[in-house]
Simulated assay, not measured.
Amino acid sequence: MTKNALQAQLLKAGLVDSKKAKLLSKQSQHAKRTGDAENIEAKKALAAAQAKKIEKDQQLNQEKQQILEQKMLTANIIQMIKQHQITDTNGEVSYQFVDHSKVKKINITQKLYDQIVAGHVVIARLEENQTLTYALLPRPLADRINAKMEGFMVVSNDKLEVELADDDPYAAYVIPDDLMW
């Protein structure tokens, strides 16, 4: 009734009797059974930890992918602005506009000035390598860029109706957008 050769040798040598061998055998079987239960719990805990790690990794990869897509979109928009900007802008008429609560001034031709006031040309912010420049873009391109990502358009003179208060004493006096001081 011995399970292995070592037990058989111990019995022959008389170091262990058959009752002691059976007891050791039962204890080892019992340890295996209870050890398996602990192993199952450990395996479940390990599988749960691995599932959490996989889920966390997938979430991090998804965030990295979104950041990469955002960078690619920004690079594409900057490329579109560079390719389609109006290049012949140097002139003697100055146009002043507000960008991030700072008044900026660019010198342009009278034709471009009229187009900006009419809303046919838009001023876009172009930030590259820590330098800030402004580009003049045609209105259709500016609308496409603004639909993809907002934040590039600085001046976009749309024909919007301004709501006036009923008790405004200056309601009859309209100030034009192209007023030169």
Rank of each mutant, 00 (worst) to 15 (best):
Leu141Pro: 04
Asp167Leu: 13
Glu41Lys: 11
Lys19Thr: 10
Ala172Tyr: 15
Val121Pro: 00
Trp181Met: 04
Ile54Cys: 08
Gln59Thr: 03
Lys52Ser: 07
Ala51Arg: 11
His84Val: 04
Lys159Ala: 09
Met72Asp: 02
Leu179Val: 10
Ala47Gly: 01
Ile175Glu: 14
Pro138Gly: 11
Ala47Trp: 09
His30Asp: 15
Lys44Met: 11
Asp36Glu: 15
Lys105Met: 11
Asp143Ser: 12
Val93Glu: 11
Thr109Ala: 14
Lys71Met: 14
Glu55Trp: 13
Gln85Arg: 09
Thr89Arg: 11
Ala75Cys: 05
Asn4Val: 03
Ile175Asp: 14
Gln65Pro: 04
Asp114Lys: 03
Ile78Asn: 02
Phe152Tyr: 02
Leu136Met: 06
Lys32Leu: 03
Gln96Ala: 04
Leu164Tyr: 08
Ala171Met: 07
Gln59Phe: 09
Ala75Arg: 15
Lys82Cys: 06
Lys102Arg: 14
Ile67Val: 04
Lys22Ala: 05
Leu126Asn: 07
Asp166Met: 03
Pro176Lys: 12
Ala51Gly: 07
Val16Thr: 05
Ile54Tyr: 05
Asn4Asp: 04
Phe97Arg: 09
Val154Glu: 05
Asp168Ile: 08
Ser28Cys: 10
Thr34Gln: 08
Ile145Thr: 00
Ile78Phe: 12
Asn76Tyr: 14
Glu38Met: 02
Ala13Met: 14
Tyr170Lys: 15
Tyr134Ala: 04
Met153Trp: 09
Leu6Ser: 11
Ala142Leu: 02
His84Ser: 07
Lys102His: 08
Pro169Glu: 01
Val122Met: 02
Leu46Tyr: 15
Leu68Trp: 06
Leu68Cys: 02
Asp178Leu: 08
Gln7Leu: 05
Leu164Met: 15
Ile67Arg: 12
Glu163Arg: 06
